[in-house]
Amino acid sequence: MIKFQNITKIYNHNTTAVDDVSFEIDGKEFVSIVGRSGAGKTTLLKLLLAEEKPTRGKIFLDNQNVHKIKPEELPRLRRRIGVIFQDYRLLSSKNVYENVAYVLEVIGASDLEISRDVPQVLEIVELADKAQNFSKELSGGERQRVAIARALIPRPEIILADEPTGNLDPYHTREVMNLLSRINEMGTTIILATHNKEVINNLGKRVITLEKGRLVRDDEKGRFIL
């Protein structure tokens, strides 16, 4: 379903973020990408989302090179992918409810669907009582849960989760991981980038390990080894 083919990304001043990385992810898989900070995890996710262009190599989603997609076709690709950004990236001018509703508006969901689904998802991430708050009024953990709600609500085919538990307490970390596992069981492909050892070891799923931008290990039912 997703294919990274000899991907290299060099930023200005010859900083190599990703160095000749190749791997494939099948549909409905749950893959974790682990590595220290700066190992290139986030860069890989940005490249898949076509937020950045690779210096070399190709990324295919269903045999379509994502960097050859015309700008006007790009929204269609991105609507297939739900992203939990490491830095949340909430819309600061919109409240919690509107942030989550926005992605449904983008895909053209009806008002009825929006007013039905948004409260449900906010209930799941335990933010129903914060629906009218703006992101600057939320704690880091709450913002992270809004980001999670926003990524889940359009029921995307793929979820990219970049450190989704980075700001969560152990209780919420467990809840979020259970949620991602359940969604994966229902057929959604999940790509999780994290450096949380415990999370990885509890999952018992495929683990890709990056070190200084290079892929050093790719294990089925892997563990966090660095």
């Binding site: 609507r79 600061s92 983008v106 895909i107």
Partner: peptide, 12 residues
């Protein structure tokens, strides 16, 4: 910043 977020979540 908001504009780029809107684009990344798939807004035309």
């Amino acid at each position: 910043e908001e504009i780029s977020i809107m684009r990344l979540v798939g807004a035309s």
